[in-house]
Design a protein around this nucleic acid. Structure first.
Lengths: 276, 276
DNA sequence: CCCGGTTACGCTTGTCGTAAAGATT
DNA sequence: AATCTTTACGACAAGCGTAACCGGG
């Protein structure tokens, strides 16, 4: 179960090709074949079918383990290296599209910060693996509860904002114009699945109407307005959305910092935490 | 960052000795020395001080990563192997001390089950790494919220019980005999820290009065009765404790199953889930 | 001087690449 | 027949153990 073997296994499974994985990883086909054979010999199980190349049940299971495992490994490397590396003065901040509110924007220093917009699910990984120095993620949670984040690495998590929710309805929707509504009213509504913008509402589990893979909030609003499905948003970003009165679920923003932030990152984190 | 190197690093840090780690791992001192040197060379940082052997700040950070990382690795191995292994007919069930209520006990089949009592924090790891086939953990959570478990591996988590809380007070305590009380009333009370019995109440963060490392509930009750500190318990286990009326926090029990349970384990899991 | 960690060195093992063979569409 | 994976084999590097070497109590 050498990480190298796992890494090629993941690549082979993703590309559905030994030779493709070899190209991607800078190996020869032969080496990739040997890697997979080594894994399969070690576990005494077929992990992939050949021709077509597809994971067997055991292989699929290993994949579920291998991906977060390799992520954690990279995170560990990056984290320790970051501790020793010279502080570069410039701070990059990973943000999910809905995580940047006016108060936080106001708290940003005039210079020295790079913003990188990522899907919510990737922000934690970006911070953990050192691609970014800090992160701001948003998501849905019970009031004053921290978000449930994948624990790829020991990150410090600080709540920096809570907002009530609102639902974006198409023009002709019967609920349009109501002062507020409860989530239960929408129990069997059709939602737009936009994992790159709005974190998936774990509670609301119905078949999504449409999937949007971008990170653009305006495109998502346009889709909702056109009637492709409903969207659950923090109230502040959509003035014309109908407020949700349910007090059990709020939109929450968290500040993520690695265990050993660089001095400039720590300074920015303090400013953002104070502003939230 | 070979797992072998990480494993020896963890062993050396734990035993504070190169030669001790070598004995434990079946290597020579020399090999251990080379392992640590390889890690330090790879990360270009001192990870341990010698004489005495102690982790440096960077080493401490790496330790925080390495332990869960190795756990996940073992979990992955065990999980895939379990998929292929022959079903052995006997099921071992890891339980935390407070996770076994009367309903669940009634649901156990008359034969073929081994119970293993573990501290709550170790149950998930035991199931993930294959030491046990199923697990029952308890903890504190908001009503109808799943417990926050360390995600060592993709485990299926099913709630099998919720119970309200009660506080165990010493005989002469002013609150003794009250019909109920709120957690806020006990904001600056002194709690007994007993991680082997009662999962740490994340919300209640005060300096613990005393730490008890065993898994014996009766010993803990005796300590509380003797006035060493307060204990927060599910109401059902302590008839003489004062009920807590706070509706935001309940005692919850979860059933943990690996992604690929053996057939007998799956059958037992179904029975337990139905009973909860 | 002893205990414990480091360094030097030889040997075994493992891993990669080249190249030929095998299999499947 | 073409494409893709497997197998065979040789070269090279990595990893471990033995043993000599240091450095502190």
């Amino acid at each position: 179960m050498d990480p190298h073997l796992l890494r090629t296994f993941v690549a082979v499974a993703r590309l559905a090709s030994f030779s493709g994985a070899a190209r991607e990883l800078g190996y020869t086909q032969s080496a990739v074949s040997q890697h997979i054979a080594a894994l399969e010999g070690d576990l005494r199980t077929e992990l992939l079918t050949r021709r077509p190349v597809e994971p067997t049940p055991a292989g699929a299971r290993l994949l579920e383990h291998a991906v977060p495992l390799l992520l954690r490994l990279d995170a560990a490397r990056a984290d320790v290296l970051r501790l020793a590396a010279a502080p570069p003065g410039r701070v990059t901040l990973a943000v999910s599209p809905l995580a940047v509110g006016p108060r936080l924007l106001a708290a940003l220093p005039a210079t020295g910060v790079t913003l990188r917009v990522l899907p919510p699910a990737e922000v934690a990984a970006a911070v953990a693996t050192g691609g970014c120095d800090l992160g701001l993620v948003d998501g849905l949670a019970a009031p004053s509860d921290p978000l449930r984040l994948p624990d790829v690495a020991p990150l410090s998590v600080t709540g920096v904002g809570e907002d009530r929710l609102a639902v974006l309805l198409p023009a002709g929707h019967p609920f349009h114009g109501r002062a507020s509504l409860r989530l239960d009213d929408l129990a069997d509504a059709r939602w737009i699945d936009a994992p790159g913008v709005v974190p998936a509402p774990a509670a609301v589990r119905t078949a999504p109407a449409l999937r949007y893979d971008g990170t653009d909030l305006h495109a998502l609003c346009a889709l909702a307005a056109a009637g492709h499905g409903l969207v659950l948003l923090p109230r502040r970003v959509a003035a014309d959305a109908v407020p949700v009165s349910d007090p059990r679920l709020v939109h929450r923003t968290e500040l993520l910092a690695p265990g050993a932030p660089t001095p400039p990152a720590a300074a920015l984190a303090a400013r953002l935490a104070a502003a939230g």
